[in-house]
């Protein structure tokens, strides 16, 4: 069994204790709620856009250390990026936590690479990925609105 410290890295424990960008944007352009019915994790993400760029975002909710830290680090990692960028980052992060054979893409993921340990704990993948799915749902909603106009 891999060392617990590979999963619960200091950065993750820190973001669990003091989550960044925690709360809610009143003037959000995008919003989505994420729910992991298996564990009862719930989170809500609000996003402010300028053009195609994420200029601010917040999350709130309750969950385990992995899901909270993932949401917190995600908010730091996507702020300032374009929506297209964000899609690519989602794919990289998904590969990081699910593909046990893929090399850890530190260059492409930056700080988010601390979640590499999750790949050895298949039961915890859904915890790490919840925030990302929620953010993608928020973005897809917007696209739905755009496409129907």
């Amino acid at each position: 069994m891999s060392d617990l410290r590979d999963l619960y890295q200091e950065v993750i424990l820190d973001h669990n204790r003091s989550p960044r960008n925690f709360g809610r944007l009143d003037d959000a352009d995008l919003q989505a709620d994420g729910h992991n019915p298996l564990c009862g994790d719930k989170l809500s993400i609000t996003v402010k856009l300028t053009g195609d760029r994420v200029t601010d975002l917040r999350f709130e909710g309750s969950g385990c250390a992995i899901s909270k830290a993932s949401a917190s680090l995600m908010t730091e990692g996507v702020k300032g990026r374009t929506l297209d960028d964000l899609g690519r980052l989602f794919e990289r992060f998904h590969r990081l936590v699910t593909d046990q054979t893929a090399p850890v893409d530190e260059a492409g993921l930056g700080k988010l690479a601390v979640f590499a340990g999750v790949r050895d704990y298949p039961a915890r993948v859904k915890c790490a990925i919840l925030a990302w799915h929620t953010l993608r749902a928020a973005v897809d909603d917007r696209h739905d609105v755009v496409s129907t106009e």
């Binding site: 617990l4 385990c64 250390a65």
Partner: peptide, 29 residues
């Protein structure tokens, strides 16, 4: 200060098998 899932993962590394979550009783939670 510790979510049940984190407890479950950590005690598992000590050989202890417990269940964590809502136990199929969401209204109880």
């Amino acid at each position: 200060g510790v979510h049940a899932h984190d407890i479950g993962t950590i005690v598992d590394t000590e050989g202890v098998a417990i269940r964590t979550g809502h136990h199929c009783t969401q209204p109880v939670m």
